[in-house]
Design a protein around this nucleic acid. Structure first.
Lengths: 109, 109
DNA sequence: ACCTTATATTGACGGCCATCAATATTCAGG
DNA sequence: CCTGAATATTGATGGCCGTCAATATAAGGT
């Protein structure tokens, strides 16, 4: 199972009306995912590809991190709804969920 | 000293061109500040005030946190350039640095 | 079936940080 | 200069999580 979206809702504007405790916990969780330099670097690397995608192995080479660590970060971002993945043979390609990133803009409106 | 801006630069777009290690460290730091539910709740509370400002003591009452903890969070956000403060008598009033928050939108463009 | 390569999981370790109690500092009023 | 109230600092503690080595799983080719 777990082949499609993890169904993560998003994103109440931060400055319009008091947010509920549930809201802030959820938002904070998203920001925490983005609070890791390695993960931001990954997003930047993916976006810089002409395909707009990258396979995990390339990330292991690009970043100076071990393969398990890269796999961990990818999982975190996938479960946060920031990445989607597609298996093609042995390789797994990751793409950015652009809608979700765009939705994050609304937080600061 | 330290009466004016802590001079925190901001914010390269995440998806346009490979970010440098320095860039991602900086950005990640900002997101980390926002990755705490209590801090988001504070921002939301300040924004919900008609004055657009709030004194520290009010925050201690509103959130269920100790005074030192609230003071700590305020300091973190102030040093991140997210809040400005103004002393009026015994009280210190905090306001949101709206420009800085708006600049964060550009990260997701 | 076997081997190789890619990816995921497990378990352990270390560092960072949110939190609080205790204490210090700052300020206004009398 | 005291006293009381608001805020800041210090030190200690506990939990979370990024990291890696070791291992497991998955997939393709021969």
């Amino acid at each position: 199972m777990k082949s499609s979206k993890p169904a993560v809702p998003c994103c109440p504007p931060l400055l319009a009306g008091k947010l509920t405790p549930a809201d802030v916990v959820q938002l904070a969780g998203l920001f925490r995912v983005l609070s890791e330099p390695a993960r931001l670097q990954m997003l930047s690397l993916i976006a810089a590809q002409s395909n707009q995608e990258v396979c995990a192995c390339e990330l292991v080479e690009s970043l100076g991190l071990s393969q398990p660590t890269v796999s961990h970060h990818l999982k975190v971002m996938y479960e946060a709804g920031l990445l989607e993945k597609e298996r093609r043979g042995t390789w797994i390609y990751y793409r950015i969920m652009q809608d979700r990133l765009a939705a994050l803009k609304e937080v600061f409106s």
